[in-house]
Design a protein around this nucleic acid. Sequence first.
DNA 1: GTCGTGTAGTTGATTGCGCAACTATGCACC
DNA 2: GGTGCATAGTTGCGCAATCAACTACACGAC
Lengths: 183, 183
Amino acid sequence: MTSELVAGRQATGPATHAATPVAADDPRLDAWRSLIQAHARLTRTMDDELQAAHHLSLAEYDALLQLVNAPGRRLRMSALADRVLLSRSGITRLVDRLVAAGMVERSQCSTDARGAEAALTPAGHERLRAASATHLDGVGRLFLDVVDPADRAAVQRAMDRVIANLGGPNGTEHECTPGTGQA
Amino acid sequence: MTSELVAGRQATGPATHAATPVAADDPRLDAWRSLIQAHARLTRTMDDELQAAHHLSLAEYDALLQLVNAPGRRLRMSALADRVLLSRSGITRLVDRLVAAGMVERSQCSTDARGAEAALTPAGHERLRAASATHLDGVGRLFLDVVDPADRAAVQRAMDRVIANLGGPNGTEHECTPGTGQA
DNA sequence: GTCGTGTAGTTGATTGCGCAACTATGCACC
DNA sequence: GGTGCATAGTTGCGCAATCAACTACACGAC
């Protein structure tokens, strides 16, 4: 047994552009492996730091962050789900936790009786403000500071292309409170 | 309320190199966001494809792959855990599943009575061979094909630096079967 | 020898997430 | 205004992963 794994060359769908079969020992796979590893280590470390310093998971932090950046500091559940990369049920329970912790309030959507929205409370805002120091420090220290600026730009380009290629959920963002910028 | 979030400038540890505080609206954060998003989408898609075509999760596939690349197609539990980025208990249960499915055999370490090792079975090898086609195709189609080769190289450089900076577990790899390359 | 400390792996309890099923509402069509 | 289908969100269930506690063994000191 000499060769361990040889790339199959079966096409999954209609190959749009000439398929480039990848072999198991293709050195280009190293980039993939590095990506997986780095991501796992990074998120785990940041999650730990955030948890230790502020008792917040990365997902919770992210949700708060999405809320503060939204107009009126409120967001429809599904919009929040899309941004935090969680399923519908996932976001329901995440918001449950945030509500229980007093960081978010659940309210009824004014223009759509089916809709619920999550709104950041002042307490949540304060909590986020504190946690953001830890998080931004982490991103800087563990990612930005160690990566060459040109490489960082390349990473962004590459990832954006991957995302575009996969095709986003393209959510048709429904607004709730047309002209309200108030809590 | 003008500025939403301002970067805290607290240093977590002794700053080795001049700290570069990151602001919440720092455009460099876009690279971070893209990384997170792309990773989530990529792994989710690949996991789905692998599951649909071969009833294997990405973690299971990865474990099989690590085994086939190991000398003697066997690995100590903790070594496997390190490579698959799982906790000790996590790897115990993952191997449990693989054993139940007949893809892996658990055996006693010859040189350390505490140790267990997981060995790939012929069935597991065959399963892996089949699944690798799907996986390699996925990596090629969703990542390698859409990313500029230069950017791909940059991604690898960047991720490797991140990993090095975080410092690996640096496991002192214990061998079990010193001179055995046989199943 | 045996005692104490460290390491390898498994197990119990808990947690967070996704899928599928369900309710409730919106909306187009007739 | 009723009918039928699509959409928003929640809930039951199951799965996989973690941490903490535990067992079993290794290894050095004496």
